[in-house]
């Protein structure tokens, strides 16, 4: 009955073999929970320009404009035509409870040329907003 005993022993200890696996998985879980930040995904993938600039946003932006490499423009996750942006910004500003804290964040890909950005800035200016920030990402190795 040697084979039967061996089989029974292995069967009983089946779950015990999983303990190291659980340990590793728990460690990974804790790492991702602590080190990662959960945030809303952008409507399109953009790679903002690298910079040594280390300013963090204190508050969340009131309006987020995303400009992709193909020139597509998303305002608050909705696809926009450039000429409609001004009206939308004016509406949002009019209905904002705290006008002082109202600011616009522009997330543009580092690879797009500046003349694609100019109409966007122009629309923001036409809407009468002055607090505008560009998103950058911190350059690695120079922190």
């Amino acid at each position: 009955m040697k084979i039967g005993e061996k089989y029974a022993a292995r069967n009983a200890a089946n779950d015990d073999n999983m303990v190291p696996l659980i340990n590793v998985v728990f460690l990974m879980l804790v790492f991702f929970m602590v080190a990662g930040q959960i945030q809303k995904a952008d409507p399109i993938a953009v790679m903002p320009p690298h910079s040594i600039n280390d300013n963090r946003a204190v508050t969340d932006p009131s309006i987020e404009i995303v400009l992709g490499t193909d020139g597509s423009l998303y305002v608050d996750d909705k696809l926009f035509v450039i000429d409609d942006v001004q009206v939308y910004l004016e509406q949002q500003f009019a209905s904002a409870p705290d006008k002082e804290a109202f600011w616009v964040q522009i997330k543009a890909d580092g690879g797009i040329s500046l003349e694609k950005l100019r109409p966007v800035f122009n629309q923001v200016r036409l809407a009468g907003l002055t607090k505008v920030s560009l998103a950058t990402q911190l350059e690695r190795g120079k922190e």
Partner: peptide, 23 residues
């Protein structure tokens, strides 16, 4: 849980540059 946190986490160090516009 692990999959959820792996997919939703973002490690891009976002920063902002202020570009104040004149009226």
């Amino acid at each position: 849980l692990l999959l959820f946190f792996m997919l939703t986490s973002s490690f891009v160090p976002w920063r902002i540059v202020d570009t104040p516009l004149s009226m």
